[in-house]
């Protein structure tokens, strides 16, 4: 595997793990990390989170990743663990570029 891809994957794995661990601790999930798939939906039938949990997710983004989300943000980043990870990575990349 070329190192570029490798480091992108490592970065993503790291973010996914931190997101999953954060979800487990903060939202009292019974699962362990490898029981939560990357494409797991956060709401609905997936992890069955609700609107109150969504506010806890915002606190997590702030505390764990230093990301503040404005209310006008497109809500789709909260769709699944994976979309949340993509959102975090894109924000981190943006910050690094600045």
């Amino acid at each position: 595997m070329e190192s570029d891809l490798e480091s992108t994957i490592e970065q993503r794995k790291d973010v996914l793990r931190r997101v999953k661990e954060g979800l487990i601790v903060r939202l009292n999930l019974y699962q362990i990390v490898n029981q939560i798939d990357d494409d797991t939906p956060l709401f609905g039938s997936g992890l069955k989170l609700d609107s109150v949990d969504a506010t806890e997710l915002l606190v997590m983004l702030d505390e764990e990743f230093g990301i503040q989300v404005s209310e006008s943000e497109d809500p789709f980043y909260l769709r699944s663990v994976n979309s949340l990870a993509s959102f975090i990575i894109s924000r981190q990349t943006k910050t690094n570029k600045n």
């Binding site: 609905g44 209310e71 909260l78």
Partner: peptide, 11 residues
């Protein structure tokens, strides 16, 4: 005014 979403999410 945009509202925070999440509540009505469906898979």
């Amino acid at each position: 005014e945009r509202q925070p979403a999440g509540e009505e999410a469906e898979i």
